[in-house]
Every structure is written in C-alpha cells, then in structure tokens.
C-alpha cells in the first residue's frame, strides 16, 4: 500500500447469504481526490461504501481507509472520516448551532474549537441569522449544505457522501458542488455516490458499478473517449444496460 492513497480496496466482497452484493471490487483513491462512485439502484454502491465506513464487515478481500485496515483499525478509521448518509442526518428538533455543537462534541472537539468554527461556518453558509433556528424550519437545500458542513466539521481526512444531492434543485446542487471543491482544495478526499450523471463530470475520477462489479474506472473525459460517448450519460447507459439485476 502506498501512503498517498486515501482509500484502497482489493477484491472487496460482500455477500448476504447467496446474494453477492459487492463482487471483488478493487480500486485506489488518492489523497484530495474527488472520487465518483456511480451505479444503478441495487448495483452495490451503498454496500461498498458502508464497508469502507465500518458500518458493514466485508465478507472477503482487503481494504484500507486513511491507511488503516477496515478489519482491525475500525476505531481509528472512524476518527478520520466524515459521513453524510442518504437520509437527512441532522436533528430536526435541534437548532443549527446545537446540531453543530453535538457533532463537534461526539468527535471530541474542544468547546473553543467548536465555538470558533461554528461562527466561521455559519458565516460561510450565510446562516448567521439562523444559528438559533430549529433545523426543521430550514429549506431542504440549506439543510443539505449544513449536513455536509457538519460531516466535515471535525476536519476528517476523507468524507463519504451517499447521494448527497437527492431531491435538491439545480442551483443548490451547483452550490453544493462548490462546497465539495472547497473541501477537496483543503486536502479532504471526497468519496461520493450519485445518480446525477452531470455531477459525474465534476469528479476527478469515476467508477461505474454494474451488478456488484466495477465495470469502468477512469477520468470522465477518458471514459467518454473509451466508450465514444458525448456525455457521461452515454457511458452510463451503455454499461447499465448490461445489468441483470434490478433491485437489491
């Protein structure tokens, strides 16, 4: 394993009984890279991501996250990663500040750090006035941006985003991706799953999963050339048509 890889996976496999959700996938993600993880519903991308986050134990294969082994150094990995799930993951009955304080607290950040960073973060999101508003009252787009900011609040090495822009309007999506670029510029590795193929174009490299296997992995421009498609849509459709399973 080379130290400049944020994530490595070698023949990573997850089986649920007879069903192989993730079938021997191998890839490396470099530090600071924005790595897009594409696939149709049921292709196994969420399962793969959950193994890397320590939410699920692999059935076979090896993987390292932030240089630590997913089997043995789970607790150390947890301190180095941030995670934003498909489901909205802030507490609706807590205010914006209380949510930030809670997540800062469970990552063991000091009160001073939390206080300073909260001020900076609210200013950055232009949410200064909403600091004491219940999260429930915020529009969805703001909630998502806030959830992302909270996921990287403790300054992780790697952030995992599971379909972060679901149900968000195009303008907010654009803003959301600006935030991803800012995080990446700070050296945070971004591992993102998405359904939106225009978003795939924003990634440094993209992998496309079909039926639990990685069928293609390269930069968006190289993939378009390889599949002689005009856009990522074309690449994706060519691969996704090969899929045999529909739900998983």
């Amino acid at each position: 394993m080379q130290p400049d890889y944020a994530i490595t996976a070698k023949d990573l496999t997850k089986r649920f009984g007879d069903f192989t959700a993730v079938d021997k996938i191998s890839f490396e993600v470099s530090r600071g890279e924005i790595f897009g993880f594409l696939g149709a519903n049921g292709a196994g991308k969420t399962t793969a991501m959950r193994m890397l986050c320590g939410l699920s134990l692999p059935s076979a294969g090896t993987a390292t996250v932030a240089g630590f082994d997913v089997y043995r150094d789970n607790e150390r990995i947890k301190k180095r990663i941030g995670y934003m799930s498909q489901k909205f993951s802030l507490y609706e009955d807590l205010t914006v500040k209380e949510n930030i304080r809670f997540y800062g607290g469970i990552y063991g950040r000091s009160d001073l750090f939390i206080k300073e960073q909260t001020g900076y973060l609210l200013q950055h999101l232009r949410l200064e006035k909403e600091g004491n508003t219940l999260v429930r009252a915020l529009p969805l787009g703001w909630k998502q941006k806030l959830a992302f900011s909270v996921a990287i609040f403790h300054e992780p090495d790697i952030v995992f985003l599971d379909e972060p822009t679901g149900g968000v309007d195009p303008v907010t999506r654009r803003e959301f991706w600006n935030m991803i670029y800012e995080a990446s510029a700070k050296g945070i590795t971004v591992f993102v799953t998405t359904h939106y193929l225009d978003e795939a174009e924003y990634c440094n490299r993209v992998s496309i999963m079909v039926d639990g296997k990685i069928e293609a992995l390269d930069s968006p421009s190289a993939l378009k050339q390889q599949f002689s498609a005009a856009s990522m849509d074309g690449v994706f459709l060519q691969l996704a048509r090969k899929a045999k399973r529909t739900e998983g």
Partner: peptide, 11 residues
C-alpha cells in the same frame, strides 16, 4: 431518521 448511522460511523 438515519441519525443512528452517523453515530455508528463516528468514534
């Protein structure tokens, strides 16, 4: 609500 996942990913 899915917040349990976030907690399980945390240390």
């Amino acid at each position: 609500t899915g917040t349990m996942e976030i907690m399980l990913v945390s240390p």
